[in-house]
Computed example of a mutant assay.
Amino acid sequence: MNATLPPQPPPDVPAPPPGPEAVKSRRKMKGILWIGIACMLTIFFAGFIIMPSERNRRIADRTEASQNIRQVHIALLDFESEFGSFPDTSTSRVVKTDTGTKLNLGSGSSSNELFRQLIAYGVNVESIFWAKTAVSPRKPNNVLGSNTLAKGECGFTYIAGLSSSSDPSAPLMMTPVIPGTWEFDPKPFQGKAVVLHVDGSVKHYPIDKDGHVIIGGLSIFDPRQPYWRGKGPDIKWPE
């Protein structure tokens, strides 16, 4: 026996309106959709607002580091005119004697200690020795005394044993070096290192994927670099 199909509406007859449950479900789906779109737009525009702000801040930090490192170079030249060389362990005793400083010049094992010789000689601020890095998160308050250039207030690595008569292209100061290594931290300055050379030039070098600054195919610290003349640099990292 053949089943009889229910009568079908003509094709040109409009579909019946959705029931209450269908309307409610459709509204719910629309609400979820609009919430999702709103979230996506918020994330999208926040990226445009926040990312440039972060980028600009890091550029400003790099600029400040460059300005400070130039100021230190001026102080180094002034110091050399008085003591015959840039600060190192050999100048510590004469600086203490000549200036009568009460600052802790230490053994010269860190850039903090060697830069205190500059302050003892007449540099009346700490802030020029600062760059915003992972090891120097807080800016010095320029209050000189027992806490002058305390740990975390110096951002520059320093190469001891150089003078203005050294190879002009030799790196003299740099940031942001990871203490105890030849590696640079790429985060503070958007993948760039700030390097002061003996001749006073300041350059921004890219940091490679392994954390190295490469010049002529070699690490900037490699003793094979022509400017080191076969002798490894006496690197003084900040505390």
Rank of each mutant, 00 (worst) to 15 (best):
N104W: 07
G122V: 11
K187P: 00
R116S: 03
S163V: 05
R138K: 07
L149P: 09
N124F: 11
M173I: 03
D78G: 08
I119L: 02
A134T: 11
K132M: 09
I128A: 02
W182H: 12
L118N: 06
E113P: 06
V143C: 08
S169D: 15
V135I: 13
V123K: 12
F156C: 02
T101V: 02
G180W: 12
P186T: 07
S110L: 10
G145T: 08
E126I: 06
Q117Y: 10
L162F: 00
E80P: 00
F83I: 04
G145Y: 09
F184M: 13
F86E: 06
R116A: 05
S110E: 09
Y121D: 15
T99C: 10
F79T: 04
N141R: 05
L114M: 14
K132A: 15
T175I: 00
S164I: 11
P140V: 03
L77V: 01
F129M: 04
S169K: 14
S92N: 08
N147H: 07
D88S: 12
S90A: 14
S163Y: 01
F156V: 01
P188H: 10
F156P: 09
K192I: 05
I159S: 01
P137H: 01
A150C: 01
S166V: 04
E153R: 10
P188T: 02
R93E: 15
K139W: 02
K151T: 14
S111K: 06
L149K: 05
T181H: 07
L105N: 03
S164T: 12
W130R: 01
E183L: 11
K192Y: 07
T89E: 15
G108C: 10
F83A: 09
S166C: 04
F189T: 08
P188L: 06
P188E: 03
T101W: 11
T99H: 06
T101N: 06
L105Y: 04
S81L: 11
P186D: 10
E80W: 08
E183K: 15
G191H: 02
P168H: 10
L77C: 00
P176W: 08
R138Y: 06
A160P: 04
F83G: 11
S107V: 03
I128W: 02
V94M: 14
S85L: 00
